[in-house]
Design a protein around this nucleic acid. Structure first.
Lengths: 146, 146
DNA sequence: GTTCGTGCAAACAATTTGCATAAGT
DNA sequence: ACTTATGCAAATTGTTTGCACGAAC
């Protein structure tokens, strides 16, 4: 089940690459798999450290370029975070909890938040593509360690 | 009216400084005024460029340290943005429109979004302090320049 | 007078770029 | 074969730190 989901997401990547005439390289596959395997919204560097163990010659440069490419292709998202860019393989609408002490970020699935709308008069001419609710607070770990 | 508001916010800064035994310096006042005067959620560097015209000897270091201090004091907020930290003098609950092309950020005042709640079961042990809705899309300028 | 802030220069970290080589189609 | 990606090193940008001097309380 998780297995099938990973396979289908990988296929999604291959299709997106082929449609844009981009080669499906080992690095791309590996970076994408790493992102699929985790839900902690890693930084570019965290992905680098993780993937490097399996592919030691891999360079940081490739991580940065590949993540940009994936965002362009729409197969992952770059998510705004006070401490720098984070990446998320979950492209469906969802929301986030962010710990203001340690920066930890967790997903929130809350369907009641998935249909919010902004009145036209408030849009300032923006063409809105998506939205997400950022809850900020202190995570369980940081509450106990204080 | 705007004038009164600026005055009262400046007073808020002075009170916060005194309560924490921090001197109210000319730089602090000037950086705070600059932030009060704009609603475009500038980066540290944008504030530096703006304030520097009136106070040429001011250093970047001071900007960074002062902004950190203000966030600590709770008189401004650091807001998450894909392209790095942004600062906002508006500490009341409000929401944002973000242009994914140019990074522009604008405030959204939409009272209907100010009372959202997250069910306890979804909170993962976080103590939630606040939240804000991030709408992402393409701003009017970027739509026309394409 | 004492404490804390500020400016400078240097350190550091994160991200980007140019170019030769390697891999995917 | 052709095109695009990759790795390396260097450049660039954003941010932090140590220290001597100056300003606010």
């Amino acid at each position: 089940m998780q297995y099938k989901w990973v396979a289908s997401r990988l296929q999604e990547l291959e299709v997106a690459c082929r449609e844009n005439r981009l080669p499906v390289t080992a690095q791309r596959r590996m970076i994408f798999e790493e992102l699929l395997a985790r839900d902690d919204h890693p930084t570019a560097d965290q992905i680098y450290e993780a993937v490097r163990t399996r592919m030691p010659q891999l360079s940081r440069t490739t991580i940065y370029r590949t993540l940009d490419t994936f965002v362009e292709l729409g197969v992952i998202r770059r998510v705004a975070h006070a401490g720098g860019a984070r990446y998320d393989a979950n492209t469906a609408r969802h929301h986030h909890l962010v710990c203001s002490a340690c920066g930890k970020m967790a997903d929130v699935l809350e369907p009641s938040l998935d249909q919010l709308t902004l009145r036209k008069g408030k849009r300032l001419g923006f063409r809105i593509d998506d939205y997400s609710v950022h809850f900020t607070g202190i995570c369980a770990d940081c509450q106990s360690h204080s």
